[in-house]
Simulated scan of single mutants.
Amino acid sequence: MEVLKTLEDLQNIRKNIKGSVGFVPTMGALHNGHISLIKKAREENDIVIVSIFVNPTQFLPGEDLDAYPRKDEADKKICSMCKVDYIFMPEISTMYTKEEVLVKAPNNSYVLEGKTRPGHFDGVLQVVLKLFNLVQPTNAYFGKKDAQQLSLIQQMVRNFFLPINIIPCEIVREEDGLAMSSRNVYLSAQQRSDAVLISKSLYMAGNLISKGERNSQVVKNKIYDVMSPLDVEYVAVVDRNFNEIETIEPKNTIILVVARFGNTRLLDNFWL
């Protein structure tokens, strides 16, 4: 495994790569969710590249950029164990200049996550497009936990005619059901215990739907009931284009929830 720091290093390596390239972009602090993406990339490609870059443009003022967990040495060991071929770990000055051509996220980025974090997805798409141009992957792997982000990246690939396959990957959970996230380390013991109510509410919703319930408001109310001890930011029932829907449509519905634990936001979802 080789660690690449500069654009020149990555570009020199990339132009000599033959065969398929699997790419997993991350912000580091790797956990089993990331590992599942890397393993899938390893199974399906000749070469695997992982990027580790805490992207400043997707953080809003007052968010946790400075406090975001950084575990570079541990991340390198994880990548080595997963048989990654190359890690790209650029500096901010490598990825951004003073004068930037900006990427503007579409209107559907200003609902749900984008409603409370305006401009967040502009920064996400900006850095992902840069990374795609540098790595030129055959396949790129993203978790379904960040459902809106996944959808917008898929849209960007279509809009810019990028020859990249976006591979959605299932959510990886702790034994008690909590979706894995780098931000879970911020939780106190009590918050960690309470956070299980997020996934419990979604399991309950899935069970309700499996018994025939199709009214979105009924399902949302039940989720709010389960999550009542928490500071719930939103519960939404949407179609695959992130339009809120009144009636649940099998194979075209996502239920999304976000709860706050102090300054920490945790999101989760259930795809139908």
Rank of each mutant, 00 (worst) to 15 (best):
E99M: 12
Y96N: 06
Q126R: 09
E63M: 08
F121D: 02
S51K: 13
V101N: 14
K98D: 11
L134F: 15
Q58M: 05
P106K: 04
P61K: 07
E99N: 10
L112R: 00
L65K: 06
V135Y: 08
N108A: 04
K71F: 04
F132C: 04
I78H: 05
Q126Y: 07
A67R: 15
V111P: 02
P118K: 08
K130G: 05
P69G: 04
V124R: 01
M89A: 07
P106V: 07
P106W: 05
I78M: 10
P106C: 05
K104Q: 12
G123F: 05
N108F: 11
L134I: 11
N107Q: 14
I92W: 04
R117M: 13
K77C: 00
H120M: 06
N139R: 15
P118F: 10
Y96D: 02
K71T: 14
F88T: 01
G114A: 12
Q58I: 01
N45S: 15
V111M: 03
Y86D: 01
V127T: 07
F88K: 06
L125F: 09
G114K: 03
V54L: 05
D75Q: 15
T97Q: 08
V84T: 01
A105W: 01
V50C: 08
E44Y: 08
E44H: 13
Y68K: 04
D85T: 06
N55H: 10
G114R: 10
K98C: 09
N133D: 08
E63C: 03
D75G: 14
Y68A: 13
V124T: 03
N133L: 12
I47E: 00
K98Y: 12
K71A: 08
G114T: 14
F88C: 03
L125V: 10
M89P: 01
K76W: 04
H120D: 13
F121R: 05
K76G: 00
V127K: 02
I47V: 13
I87W: 00
F121V: 02
K98S: 13
F88N: 04
